[in-house]
């Protein structure tokens, strides 16, 4: 068993107690599909989360189904197929925040509630709500942490995700905002986007650091693959002068934090998204409705947003990152139904 899988089992055990109280109300025919936009390590935690939630709450199933490629059309085809196969609840990371709305409407019309997980759909949407990371805030906090470690001055390079993902622009804006608040002491000298895949990330990050590594004082990454590639690059260069704040919990990044090549990472909570999302879908199928006055937050995409949690972890907390995720998930689960749902 991998460390990550072990971590998720610990997390599940922690949540089991609270689950026991609600399992009795579950709809036994609830079959939830957890569908990302394509293969990506970020979503691997959804698989265990779906299984754990199905077991804990007595559902027919909680299956992680991945489109073979990161293509909106492939995701749409898979979702349409899953409805035909009998799935009746969907946690979906939208392949596109606008383009995903069409298929979501059709799923809802077929009687299957949908929750946007990991990323939001742009309103108006038929999704019940969005359970994900406040990406702009996460990038902002991460950049602030980086600036602290740079001593409040210097030059930053920002390595970001796909340009067709509007979250990327939100993250770019957030990083620029954090830098702008230093009144010129910190400057974002380079943004390299569209690199959340191994090949372009390796090529562009390594080329940039080879040519300009001595000109930057800090690196902030706001996508999984660039974080891994940057951490590896700094390790290979043996460079601890350049400060770096990454994102997510890849083992490469966590080890680089322990070894001092990376200063910290902005954790997200994909396991919590999968677990809470599956639970909520079952409740919606069991007759609950979303509260009109629920304490939703607002983002650039939606005003029905639930923050699944984001927290900064550095060397002092990296060994207990699972605990951090667990605490966030427990906190949301503790009064989720009371806060967000109306159940007869």
């Amino acid at each position: 068993m991998t460390k990550t899988a072990h971590a998720f089992r610990l997390l599940a055990a922690g949540l089991l107690l609270s689950a026991a109280t609600t399992a009795a109300h579950a709809a036994e025919d609830t079959l939830v599909a957890l569908v990302p936009a394509g293969p990506h390590p970020y979503f691997s935690a959804w698989e265990q989360a779906g299984k754990d939630a199905a077991k804990d709450f007595g559902l027919e199933g909680g299956d992680y189904r991945v489109p073979p490629k990161w293509e909106l059309s492939q995701q749409n085809q898979l979702l349409e197929s899953l409805v035909t196969q009998g799935y009746n609840g969907f946690l979906v990371f939208p392949g596109d925040p606008v383009g995903g709305n069409g298929v979501v409407s059709e799923l809802v019309e077929q009687g299957a509630p949908v929750i946007a997980g990991g990323g939001c759909l742009k309103e108006p949407s038929d999704a019940a709500f969005c359970l994900g990371t406040d990406t702009g805030n996460s990038a902002y906090i991460g950049t602030q942490e980086l600036i602290k470690r740079m001593g409040g001055k210097g030059k930053i390079a920002h390595f970001a995700g796909f340009l067709v993902d509007p979250n990327t622009q939100l993250r770019i804006d957030a990083v620029n905002k954090a830098a702008a608040e230093t009144n010129g002491a910190v400057e974002v000298v380079q943004v390299i986007a569209d690199i959340d895949a191994p090949e372009p990330a390796e090529e562009k990050i390594n080329a940039y650091l080879a040519a300009h590594g001595n000109e930057v004082d800090g690196i902030v990454t706001t996508a999984w693959i660039p974080a891994v590639v940057s951490a590896n690059a700094l390790r290979k260069m043996g460079d601890k002068r350049i400060k770096m704040v990454g994102i997510d919990h890849d083992e490469v990044v966590l080890q680089a934090i322990k070894d001092g090549f990376v200063d910290g990472t902005m954790l997200q909570n994909p396991y919590g998204q999968g677990y809470i999302g599956t639970f909520a879908l079952d409740r919606l199928r069991s007759g609950c409705t979303v509260k009109e006055d629920a304490p939703f937050a607002s983002t650039a995409l939606t005003d029905r947003f639930i923050d699944s949690g984001t927290t900064f972890v550095d060397a002092s907390g990296v060994d207990n990152y699972v605990g951090a995720m667990q605490a966030i998930t427990k906190e949301i689960m503790a009064d989720f139904e009371t806060n967000y749902l109306t159940c007869e």
């Binding site: 490629k69 059309s73 749409n76 596109d96 383009g99 069409g102 796909f162 067709v164």
Partner: peptide
Amino acid sequence: MLTARHGAAIPSMAGHLGQD
């Protein structure tokens, strides 16, 4: 036709560079 299917004109409808 894809726009009719999605209900919107979206830049990612054919993937990165339209390669899909």
